[in-house]
Write a protein that binds this DNA or RNA. Structure first.
Length: 267
DNA sequence: ATGCCTTTCCCAGAAAGA
């Protein structure tokens, strides 16, 4: 079983790249973030031709998450109870979708950005983490392999940013955000640490601006978190930084996790 | 870097990203 997570920054803009990428690397389950298309505008047909089923939780211009799978998709959850929404719970954003694929429960997450520690979106981010953590608790404890993946918008340690000094006091590295991320892990989820195919740090995001990718100015903010049942099956994980190269790339690279997971798959 | 990209809305420039 090969699971991957990728913030594509618009599935519409990225579709040619995603199709080419799927044809090349044999991914079984791909979790997407920032699809940026309305619920019914996801290009499911193009992926269907490759043998993948799609479940999407989209809202249009912003956000949007999806799971695509060639090993089946069942028991879909769009969002979770207690999501605080922004600016209030009358306006829930499309940031979480869960599904069971080939015997593995997966969650594709796009955690709110936070913007700055003073911004209302920062408090929203922490509240969203809190509600997510409460909802995942029961699923972590289950014997089913569980992968909680996506763009967490947190750099958990100073090693996860290219220059910690430049991030002092900024969002993504504050104690409260790191504590929120650690709170998810504390449910019993292991950070499946990916190999970096170049350099010392497996960064997953490089800003479009300022030539950040070529200058190594990255962050590790996309993760695969695995419960014990899945973690024990993991054989390899790495960041596919090749996918960040060239014209028309997303600003995030995909993260792969491979595992020897055998389930009763009815596809 | 209160941003030198990129994407969406949709045709001009604002909003958002991290």
């Amino acid at each position: 079983m090969r699971i991957a997570t990728w913030n594509v920054n618009s599935i519409t803009a990225r579709l040619p790249r995603v199709v080419e990428w799927l044809q090349a690397n044999g991914t079984d389950v791909l979790c997407l973030q920032e699809t940026k298309v309305a619920q019914d505008k996801f290009p499911a047909d193009a992926l269907g031709e490759l043998g993948y089923e799609v479940v999407h939780h989209g809202q249009g211009r912003w956000n949007g998450v999806a799971v695509i799978s060639r090993v089946g998709i069942a028991d879909v959850e769009r969002g979770f109870p207690g999501d605080p929404g922004f600016p209030d719970d009358e306006t829930i954003e499309a940031r979480a979708i869960g599904a069971t694929c080939g015997g593995v429960r997966v969650w594709s997450l796009y955690v709110p950005n936070g913007r700055t520690p003073e911004d209302p979106h920062y408090a929203y981010k922490l509240a969203w983490f809190s509600a997510l953590t409460a909802h995942l608790a029961a699923q972590v404890a289950a014997p089913t392999p569980l992968a909680v993946v996506g763009d967490f918008n947190v750099a958990p340690t100073d090693a996860d940013v290219w220059d910690p000094a430049k991030f002092a006091g900024a969002t993504h590295v504050t104690d409260a955000e790191r504590a929120a991320f650690d709170g998810v892990k504390a449910l019993g989820l292991h950070d499946v640490f990916p190999r970096a195919l170049k350099g010392d740090h497996p960064f997953t995001f490089w800003d479009y601006r300022d030539g950040a990718f070529h200058r190594g100015m990255g962050m590790r903010i996309d993760f695969v978190l695995a419960n014990p049942a899945l973690q024990s099956a993991v054989t390899d994980a790495y960041v596919d930084r090749e996918a960040r190269k060239g014209k028309g790339a997303s600003d995030h690279a995909p993260v792969f996790a491979d595992g020897e997971v055998y389930a009763d798959v009815d596809v």
